[in-house]
Amino acid sequence: MDRHVFEFLAGRVCLDFINTVSWRESETAAVERLTSYSEILAWAAAGGVLDRQAARRLRARALRHPKEAEAAHTDAVRFRDALYRTICAELEGAASDPADLAKMNARISEAAAFRRLVPSEAGFVWRCDESNLRAPLWTIALSAADLLPSPGFARVRRCGLEDCGWLFLDTSKNKTRRWCRMEICGNRHKAQRFYEKKKLRDRGTPPSQTTRPH
């Protein structure tokens, strides 16, 4: 079977990581894309979170230390899902789950402890220890730590298609972006609306009596 092609369209590393569940809000079609530590490395290399040499080193280390790799995978997925629930609660004006915040803060604190300033061609940059199996999670955690308290968080959106659940940063000029992927979710929404209206016409029911705003 061909490897899944990850998409990086959210505008922030932590949001792209959340989007590693396809059709997250569907009761029947949700698909977990990070089924192993190896898949986390594949995602990190594809998105530039790790360079490919670092990903190869970590993959070799994971083979030597499978229990350590399994623990890193479990923590990364738990962090991802806690972050998703926390962001969605904020978008909906609801209270965050203290247990989710505790998971997030634990990983953010851990990441900060392993972050170091290193020189680069563009000047100094922050780097985490890329020899540690938890390095991808630390980069994601620091991305979340930067985004959530920043003014930019006001531009975080959830895809307008109910089953999708993907998050993205709306950088459109008028802040009117509704879909994570117009060619998929936008078109699917249009098709659903067309089908619903057709059913109502077939039954002789005026659309205004039964349709609800999306």
Rank of each mutant, 00 (worst) to 15 (best):
A102D: 09
K173S: 09
H65L: 03
E27P: 02
Q192V: 02
A30M: 01
L148V: 12
A82I: 03
F17H: 07
E183W: 05
D100Q: 06
A29S: 12
K197E: 14
N174Q: 10
F17W: 12
M182Y: 15
C159Y: 06
E110A: 12
E92N: 12
T205R: 15
L169Q: 04
C159I: 07
I108R: 09
F79K: 00
G123I: 05
V31S: 08
P151T: 00
H4R: 08
L167Q: 08
L148G: 01
T28C: 00
R107T: 15
P151L: 00
D146Y: 04
R203F: 14
V13W: 10
R158D: 03
W138S: 01
G11P: 13
R158Q: 14
A82D: 04
W166R: 06
G152N: 04
I140K: 03
C128Y: 03
F114K: 13
N19Q: 13
G186W: 05
E39K: 04
C128E: 08
S38C: 01
P119V: 14
E90H: 11
R201K: 14
R57H: 10
D170Q: 07
L161K: 03
G47R: 09
H189V: 01
W138M: 09
E92T: 06
P136F: 12
E70N: 01
L91V: 10
R107D: 14
F194V: 03
E162T: 15
C185M: 06
S22R: 14
A72M: 04
S26W: 06
R212L: 11
R127A: 09
C185F: 04
S150E: 02
C159H: 04
D2C: 07
T139S: 15
S150W: 00
E25H: 15
R177H: 11
F114M: 13
A113K: 13
M104R: 08
P98V: 01
D81L: 13
E183D: 14
D100K: 09
R24P: 07
L91R: 11
A45K: 02
G123R: 04
M104P: 12
I140S: 05
D146G: 06
K190P: 01
L50M: 03
K175R: 14
A60D: 04
R115H: 14
F114G: 10
L41N: 06
A44G: 05
A69I: 02
F194S: 10
K103H: 13
A95M: 05
G160F: 13
V118P: 05
W23K: 09
N105D: 08
T176A: 07
H65Y: 07
L169W: 11
V21H: 11
Q192K: 04
R33E: 15
L63F: 02
A44C: 11
S131R: 03
L91S: 07
I140N: 00
P213M: 05
Q53R: 10
A154M: 02
K103G: 08
H4Q: 11
A29E: 15
R212A: 08
G11N: 08
R134Y: 10
A82T: 02
R33W: 06
A106F: 10
T210F: 15
E27S: 13
A135L: 00
V13E: 10
P119R: 13
Y37F: 12
W166E: 10
S131F: 00
R157W: 12
A141K: 02
C185P: 09
N132T: 09
D97L: 11
R188F: 03
A10L: 15
L34Y: 06
R158W: 06
